[in-house]
């Protein structure tokens, strides 16, 4: 049987792991390579690294970090943050990442998804969708959740599937950092609407929240950060749960 995936996410800022609440208020959470190795030992199914500084100057720092991670860990991992072009993707994949995650750049130029899928395969393209429930509608946000777009989340995810995205990483900004559970409504709706894996993100606080999202939605995986970093939920216990 195909297993549901538990995916720790490491937000990277200047080579360190950090975590914010509701996309702001950042706390230091340690060395990414050490943390990644710990997660692998604990049985994480996959890892996601998001470079939240994501400027052109630190592209080289990021690819050096990706190389280091690839040497040390033996499970699939995704790298995202500030990826704007096929060249950016190529740099990250050659450094040893299995997948890249794009977000604002996909909204700006959806063709980028198709280009990456053609060059490296769909399995390589994760599109991160940051969404917020506002005025009775789920809307897509970009730039690390700072800027709302005119895109309705349900329309956008269907377009992503058609463009060749391999996976959708769906973060509810209403739930992120709140530890009150994943957004079951939008995760459920998106995972029913598309025929590609959907990873639920934002809001995990207890083991029950993971069970809930897998029971009530068709999500293929669930992602969380701080509850793993600070040891609030040990991964081995969660996987047995």
């Amino acid at each position: 049987m195909l297993k549901k995936r538990i995916i720790p996410c490491l937000d990277i800022c200047d080579g360190r792991t950090v975590k914010g609440i509701n996309f702001i208020d950042i706390r230091d959470a340690g060395d990414p390579v050490d943390l990644a190795k710990r997660y692998v030992q604990e049985g994480a199914d996959e890892l996601v690294f998001l470079d939240i500084t994501a400027t052109h100057e630190n592209r080289k720092t990021l690819s050096a970090l990706v190389e280091k991670i690839a040497m040390e860990i033996n499970i699939p991992f995704t790298v995202g943050g500030g990826i704007n072009s096929l060249q950016d993707v190529s740099l990250i994949i050659k450094a040893g990442a299995d997948k890249v995650s794009i977000n604002s750049s996909a909204v700006k130029r959806p063709l980028l998804i198709t280009e990456i899928a053609k060059e490296f395969g769909s399995q390589c393209v994760v599109v991160a969708v940051d969404t917020k429930f506002i005025s009775n509608e789920w809307i897509v946000y970009v730039n690390g959740g700072r800027i709302p777009t005119l895109l309705r989340t349900m329309d956008w995810v269907k377009q992503l599937e058609e463009s060749g995205a391999g996976e959708i990483l769906l973060t509810s900004m209403n739930n992120d950092g709140m530890k009150t559970g994943f957004a079951l409504d939008i995760t459920g709706a998106v995972s029913l609407a598309v025929n590609i894996p959907v990873i639920a993100s934002g809001g995990a606080g207890t083991m029950e929240h993971f069970k809930e999202v897998f029971e009530y939605t068709k999500a293929s995986g669930a992602l969380a950060a701080s509850i793993f970093h600070f040891g609030e939920i040990p991964i081995p216990t969660l996987k047995k749960y």
Partner: peptide
């Protein structure tokens, strides 16, 4: 089912 078959299986 979802294609690709992606993830951990026995």
């Amino acid at each position: 089912e979802l294609v690709p078959h992606m993830g951990w299986n026995n």
